[in-house]
Design a protein around this nucleic acid. Structure first.
Lengths: 332, 332
DNA sequence: TTCATGGAGGTAAACGCTTTCCTATTGCCG
DNA sequence: CGGCAATAGGAAAGCGTTTACCTCCATGAA
């Protein structure tokens, strides 16, 4: 269909009657040229629609001007926002951002990253990948940053403190007068135990019950499936905290189908503050984990690292409690 | 910080005491080896933690086993789903998918794509990019596919028919008895006029009014901003169609804040059937545009193209009307 | 007129790999 | 034990660039 091979620097040189070195210098704006040469070069490039082969360039310079960002699930708005933030900063600094979706398939993650590494100057990887892969990445010859909770203290990690996030939410809910807490976690995430710790830290001293449930994926659908299990529990919670907003929203929806009034029969809260949490009914109480800022910060840091400026390895962002109607009882 | 240069095939060859050709053959499993060599190779590779430099490989083979997908806005769940579909198919076929977010910044799109082209075996680009870029892409030496409405008939394009999508929705709404239609479009998208055409095609014969408004970006926020303009119009519509679900949801939310009852005072419908449209209150009537299937289909086709199997250039998916409560009046 | 100066433009090596084409060794059969 | 095919392993070219280094010519100062 499209036979014509891409033109190379050699084609341009030939057409313009100069050496390839000259073309290279012209394309990269490295020196000035006599009027004749400059003109011929410009014409040749336009006629051939030449553009640099970034692969070949990267091979010799060792720089790709690209950064890779590997996330667990692009369909999760939390990650979409991280990507947004990262992308803006990358573009503003002249880097391209290549995003790859690991699809929660932890097994296949290594080859995927191996393919990504040589194509980029630095990598941002969402945590929650196998330890051996983490270690391999950390030993790499190029900067790597992680999203989430630090697993090693010698590598750049950006995120909020899960313990703190959970505690923040629990404190507020206790103050609201809730007595029986349900937590629907995602045990495959390492930070699940941190969140539990944060909850217990607040709930135990307050003498409040905590029932723990689990979902097998952090999605709306999993939340819907989990809802009945939680709501029909003999000791039904009066407030349910979802692993994230997606799970909480799924549960809340199902709860309504089952005839529960929210928040009066049962209240819900999530974590992440994804955009839609404002739009569901009732609007969802949640904790803002600075998704977009995370992307921005991690990108700034990794660019600094790429450019040889050493950076502190850990960076924790301050979460913010977002209270909405899903936890505000009229009686209170 | 991380001084050690990545090991190359040469390091492995040296350590194992063989030639680099042998290492290459081993790594790519191209021939059998004597026991001694095989063992030394395996050990050397493990000890050095060697992995191929995919850039160098791509240079010589001319194949990257990667596909690029450039979308307008990754934060739009419609695109997230396209990506999901595409990613699954890519992975299943041994390709990596690199996603880039063009951020609606049409000006900077050309350099971005120029960087992407040499790094991939094929490109999928969401339509709505400048004509000259489209043409440049179409002339490329590698397969390109577009998402959306075909702008040229010699290049693979996958999507739903915008005229049809709009008509489908309009038909249903007319049948529901709505009399004054509002349409809040996104005029910067070429398909906006197709949608208008689809609406008019149905509404004019039915003798139904159509008021047209515009948003400057297809987001929740833009919907919220537009809502007042539409709702306070002297000739207020009894049903409002948003450019997409995001806009519709934003408007609906604002409408409720303004005290309108939905759908009794004013009904809303969107387009795309993004996941959250089920979870808002009331659930949003919309048209499913097969986001995920679009991704799957376009990826299958482009892989076929890469592997030399010619494909039909156009492929239109059948949209499906999704009726929900946001347009179901109790009175009806 | 001469000679240093500087800048335009060229030559060739190198980046890390694959692949074609050889060579040399092995195993097998008669 | 001789001869042949089969096959393990190596040498070298080449993918499209950049870049260090070199040459050459024009310019200007003495």
């Amino acid at each position: 269909m499209k036979r014509p091979k891409r033109p190379t620097i050699r084609d341009v040189a030939e057409k313009a009657g100069v050496s390839i070195a000259t073309v290279s210098k012209y394309v990269n704006g490295q020196q000035s040229f006599s009027q004749g040469v400059e003109e011929r070069l410009r014409d040749a490039i336009n006629e051939l629609a030449y553009s640099q082969n970034s692969l070949a360039r990267a091979m010799v310079t060792g720089r790709t001007t690209a950064i890779g960002l590997a996330v667990m699930d692009l369909a999760n708005p939390h990650y979409s926002n991280v990507v947004k933030g990262a992308n803006r900063v990358a573009l503003a600094n002249g880097y391209n951002l290549f995003v790859v979706d690991m699809e929660e398939s932890l097994a296949a993650v290594r080859p995927l990253l191996e393919a990504l590494v040589p194509r980029t100057d630095g990598l941002i990887v969402s945590a929650r990948i196998p330890k051996d892969v983490t270690d391999w990445l950390a030993e790499l010859d190029k900067p790597v940053a992680f999203l989430g909770q630090p697993e090693r203290d010698d590598v750049l990690t950006v995120g909020t403190d899960s313990v703190h996030v959970a505690a923040l939410l629990a404190q507020y809910l206790v103050r609201q007068g809730f007595k029986r807490f349900g937590y629907v976690g995602y045990s495959r995430a390492p930070s699940n135990s941190d969140r539990l710790q944060g909850l217990k830290q607040v709930l135990e001293p307050a003498g409040v019950e905590l029932l723990i449930f689990d979902v097998d994926e952090p999605t709306n659908e999993a939340g819907e499936r989990a809802a009945a299990r939680v709501l029909l529990h003999p000791d039904r919670p009066d407030v349910i905290i979802g692993w994230n907003d997606l799970v909480a929203i799924g549960m809340m929806n199902e709860a309504r189908s089952l005839g529960f009034r929210i928040p009066d029969d049962v209240a819900f809260a999530g974590i992440d503050n994804i955009p839609v949490s404002r739009y569901v009914t009732p609007p969802l109480t949640t904790v803002d984990v600075c998704s977009q800022a995370t992307g921005e910060v991690v990108m700034k840091k990794i660019i600094a690292l790429i450019e040889g400026k050493p950076q502190p390895t850990g960076l924790v962002l301050e979460p913010a409690l977002i209270t909405r109607e899903s936890t505000q009882r009229r009686s209170t």
